[in-house]
């Protein structure tokens, strides 16, 4: 045994080099027999971890791209949903307007409010119809809820509406039940009130207030509001009547101008 050890020690270099050549020759001479098991070991030990890492990185990159795509899609979808919701709201409003009949002798000119002006309460509204649509000053403006105001000025494509909430605006009004007449006006301290109604009148909360047609600007029968409070102060000739306006002046959107051309 020692002679073998001595021989190995003496020719160690040549034996190692010979083994390398023999192993290489094995790959060259019989690749079908040698390669499969060696390849399996080499691939599983050395190549597979990096191949797995590479595919994981590629998957992460794909996930990031997919994530980005989905974010954009979500943003677009949110915008689309917001548009649809607005369309639904508009649809509801327009359905309520359908079948809305103007007073006799008038025709309706639909318009959209572009802007509202006023410090605390809107008192003016700008609409998208003007002289080119035959809009004239003093034409009444209504919506499906009731009387809104009158056209106060007109330009070519726009017009300004003086709302009932403008303290300088006055409407000749009549109580629907008792037919008593008065003047509706708006004050900053008490809101919308019905003035000039004698204390002897039979006005009561819940009475509907309509335009009377007196004064010539507003046609009769347009709803102005509902009586919510009646006070009869001593030593005063007129009642103090507070009205809940028929129109919500903070959210007017689609309106109608009453054109007198068909009269």
């Amino acid at each position: 045994m020692s002679w073998f050890t001595n021989l190995f020690a003496k020719h160690s270099r040549n034996i190692h080099l010979g083994l390398i050549v023999i192993f290489s020759a094995g790959f060259i001479a019989a690749p079908a027999a040698v390669m499969p098991p060696v390849r399996q070991v080499i691939v599983s030990v050395f190549h597979f971890p990096f191949a797995h890492l590479k595919s994981s990185i590629a998957e992460l990159r794909d996930e990031a791209a997919e994530n980005d795509r989905l974010r954009r899609l979500l943003t677009q979808s949110s915008m689309t949903i917001a548009m649809y919701e607005e369309a639904v709201r508009e649809n509801v409003r327009l359905r309520s307007v359908l079948g809305f009949e103007p007073p006799p002798g008038y025709e309706l000119l639909p318009a959209e409010v572009i802007s509202l002006a006023g410090d605390f309460t809107p008192i003016y509204a700008v609409i998208d119809k003007g002289a080119s649509d035959s809009v004239l000053v003093d034409q009444p403006v209504i919506n499906q809820q009731g009387l809104i105001g009158r056209v106060s000025s007109v330009s070519q494509d726009y017009a300004t509406i003086q709302l009932l909430t403008d303290p300088s605006n006055r409407v000749a009004a009549r109580l629907a039940r008792s037919r008593e007449v008065g003047i509706v006006k708006f004050t900053s301290s008490r809101g919308m009130i019905l003035d000039n109604l004698p204390v002897q009148g039979t006005v009561a909360p819940g009475d509907t207030v309509l335009s009377s047609g007196l004064g010539g600007v507003y046609p009769p029968g347009l709803k102005v509001g509902t009586v919510v409070e009646v006070r009869r102060p001593d030593l005063e000739p007129f009642c103090e009547i507070t009205i809940d306006p028929a129109v919500n002046f903070y959210s007017i959107d689609e309106i109608f101008i009453l054109k007198t051309g068909a009269r």
Binding site: I28, A29, P31, M35
Partner: peptide
């Protein structure tokens, strides 16, 4: 590299 592997190792 198939059959050429042995040659490349060498």
């Amino acid at each position: 590299y198939g059959d050429a592997t042995g040659w490349y190792i060498l």
